[in-house]
Structures are given as structure tokens and as C-alpha cells.
Design a protein around this nucleic acid. Sequence first.
RNA 1: GGCCCCGUCGUCUAGUGGCCUAGGACUCUGGCUUCUCAAGCCAGCUACGAGGGUUCGAAUCCCUUCGGGGCUGCCA
Length: 486
Amino acid sequence: MTNAREVRTRFAPSPTGDLHVGNIRTALFAWAYARHTNGKLVFRIEDTDRERVTDEYIGRAIDTLKWLGLNWDEGPEVGGPYGPYLQSQRLDIYKEWAETFLRNGDAYHCYCTTEELESRREAQREKNQAPGYDGKCRSINDSDLQRYQSEGRKPVIRMRMPDGETKFQDLIRGEVVFEHKYVPDFVLMRADGSPLYTLAVAVDDVLMKITHVLRGEDLLSSTPRQIRVYQAMGVTESDFPKFAHLPFVMGTDNAKLSKRNGEVSIAWYREEGFLPEAICNYLALLGWSPGDDRENVSMKELTELFTVERVNSSPARFDMKKLEAINGDKIRALSIEEFLERSLPFLLRENVISGNENEVSLVKQALPIIQERIIKLSEVVPMLSFLFKKKLEFDEETKKKIKESDSQKVLKSALASIEALNDWSHTRIEEALRKSLLDELGLKPRIAFGPVRIALTGSPISPPLFESMELLGREVSLQRLREAID
RNA sequence: GGCCCCGUCGUCUAGUGGCCUAGGACUCUGGCUUCUCAAGCCAGCUACGAGGGUUCGAAUCCCUUCGGGGCUGCCA
């Protein structure tokens, strides 16, 4: 009753690089919450200060989000009633607000130079005081002002933090209080008129009617500043966005997840052959749980079950092994058609196949026997390339094995027993080989089939042997056996 | 230093005063199965950071302490 407002969440990355694990987890939660509540997800680019080609970045970000199955209701590409959704295109808006704050006395011009600020901060530190702006320019006398101006100083616009405290209910952490003596006056706008994050983020969240801000916990202590901006904008407290500060996703070594302790770029996971639904499933479990024992969560279930209240407040370590386990499960759950469609790009990329009909058909027949033995799509390449190679390559170790006299004996016997087979099916092949190698030569299975496997696939590890031989076909199979025999 | 956040198996978590001699999943170890590798199945190891309270009873509430992290910018 009290909150009839439609839920509006936002995902607002800054274009500092490719979307990474932490970013995406935030996006996923914001998306899931919007969908859960039948609300809207706004996608906004926070590019207030960077001079860079955002086009390329934005393109990649859009591509990644779409690939993951995350869609947005307002933002780049789709537009919306509260655009533009690039902060670099909203500079006038921020400037106007900053001037309004100035007029109302909520903000003031600050002429302090970087050097002055630094030396005063240093002094504060030495006296064991909290470093931060000391409020020097809150009131400037005329002579100082004239001096500054004659010196050609250009002022920044600084927000005045009144005495008191800021209190708010974080959806994940409960009540959080900051006394203003620990929140110094902060800069809203640089001397050149460009806005700072603190200004832009708050103005946009208000103007875009964001109701729930889901973001990393590193922004928790900047929240009082955002709230101060809301107040200066004249927003009533009941209309402030609600905050949910998500715990970090950290690397295995307990440090912040970075390139050094694990792969962070989502693009990397895509190239490795992780499925988008596996990535989302795994990330959803990092800091959130459905509340029961289920671990396999589809995107649909996520939107049905996700609530901010169930998000954990403590940080999570990224565990590649678990991601891989989930990815393997998702791969096994794929229909052969889906599996094929997702595998082909990898085979094409590595030039295992050129893509003609015969090749694709052979791949499709082979997929069922490898589906349960791979954890990443990229593994279809080493798994299936033996089917398409003109000539097998053996490494030294493997080659030695096959040249042993016992192996040679096995290969000769194997060849003899299947040469005349008129039904080249894996069941008949198996029958024949078991008879000749196990029954007649009296060998143990692993001893018997090992050399044959190497001769046919080039490796002691391969998909099931008899099925592989069937797929390879009689001609190639016999030829490879003959080639392996001296 | 100050402020803020966080603390259950190695990891992700369930747990909101009795259902907990703490459950699930991943990892790891052992076994079964088996043509290799997997998958599958079974079993096992391992946790409430510590110390005080409150209570008949605490992982759950309170205090202290220790540990980890973030912020402390004209970065976001």
C-alpha cells in the first residue's frame, strides 16, 4: 500500500574495461530483482570523466549482457523515457543541479588547490585527525576571493555537509549510520565543469526514478554523500532509492578478485566454453541462495526466487572448480541439437572442421559419447579432432607404447579380427575384438584395448573405443591400424 | 590512525533460541562400476574465530576481543 511505486533497478558500470565477474554478479542481481518484481532494469553508462572511445566498450558490454541472457528495459539500444543513458551526454543536467545547489547555499565554490589540500591533509594526519576537507572555503572573505581570482584560480563546486548524521536502512545490512564529522564536504564539479561520480550517480538515480540501488559494498561509505545530494535536490526521504550493498566477490587467495588470482573477464569464460546459464547459475549462488538445498537454478527460477533480503552480507570467494562442476552439469543437460549448435563455433575456430555438411553430421553423431566427459565446450576440440585428422600425431611416450612388441601383437590380432567384418557397428566391433583379444589372447581389457585406442585416436585417453571406431568408419579405422603396425 | 562493513566445513552456503551429536553442494580421500577418461553410485574427512554473559536451553540475543575487508580523492 505504502509503496505502490514500480521497482526500478539499474546497472551502471563505468567503462574501465571489460565486464568482469563482480560486475556481472551485480548486473545479474539487479536484473533478477527487477524481473522478480515485474519492475524495470535500467542500464546506464557511468562515463563522466573518461576520455575514451566508449562506443567499443559499450558494444562489448551490450554483447556480453545479451549473451548471458540479461536484458534491460531502458538504456543504450532500447532508449527510454529518462534518457540519455550515457552520463557523458548528460553533462548539462549535472551542471544545472550543481548551480542550483550553489544558489540554495547547499554547495559553495572552493578555491583550494590540490597542493594546499594535500598539505593540510598531511597536517591532519600528523595530528591524528580524520583527514578530509576542513571547510576552509565555506566562507571566504572578499580580499581572499579577490586574491584567488587575480591569481587566476578556478573554483570547484563543493557540497556542504551539515552537522548531524545520515542514517539509512541497507536492505542487506540493516541500519547504517554515519556521523557527518566523518563525511567531509565533497567535490561535486571540477573547475572545468565536469561532474564527479557522486553528483552524477545521485542525480541520475533520482531523475531515472530508481527505487533500488544494488551495488558493491565498496560504495557503502559514499552513501551519505548520495543522500546529501538527494536532499539538496529536494527529494523527500520516502522517495530516496533503497540501497542494497552487495558483498564482494573475491579471489581464492582472499584478495579482491583480479587478473592475478583468477580470470575475471567474462569474455574469457565465453571463449573457454562456459555456458552463459552456468555462469549465471554459479554467480547467483555467490552471495545468494534460494533457501533450500537446490543448487541448479535456471534463469527462470532465479527471477522467481530472487529477493534482495536473501542476499548474504559476507564476501564470497570465487571457486573455479564449482563453476566447472556446474558447467559440466549444464552441458550434460543440453539436447544434442543445442550441444551441437554451441560446439560448432569451437570446432570451426580451431579449424578442426571447415563446416561442411558431412563434418557437421559426423560431429552430431559423436557428441553423445563425449557429452558426459567434458566440462567446457572448448574440450570438444581435443575430444573430436581425431575424427577429422588426415594423419595422427603421437607424442613420444605414446608412440613408444605402441611400438612395444606386445602392443604390436595386439594390433595385428585386432586388425585380423575386424578386417572381414561386414557390419561395421560398434557392437560387432566390440564383439570381434573381445573375442580375438580377450578370449583368444587372454588379455585383460585395459591391456588389450589400450594399443588399439592409441592407434585409432592417437591418445591413451579418448571417447569410448568401439563407438569411436564406428564413427571413424571402416576404411580409416583399418588404415590407422595398419599404419600403427610396423 | 579514524569511520563503516563482515566472520558456520578448504570453498559456496542452509540455519533467525530447542527439529543441530550443525544439513546440502563443490573440492579432496577411499570404494563400486568399467575398454581409457569421464559420468554415475556409495562411504569418509573437515566448520559455528576467541572469551565472557543472558537463558532451563545459543551457531542463533548482548558485551568484549581477535581477524579480514572497504572507505578516508578535483577515481568510480
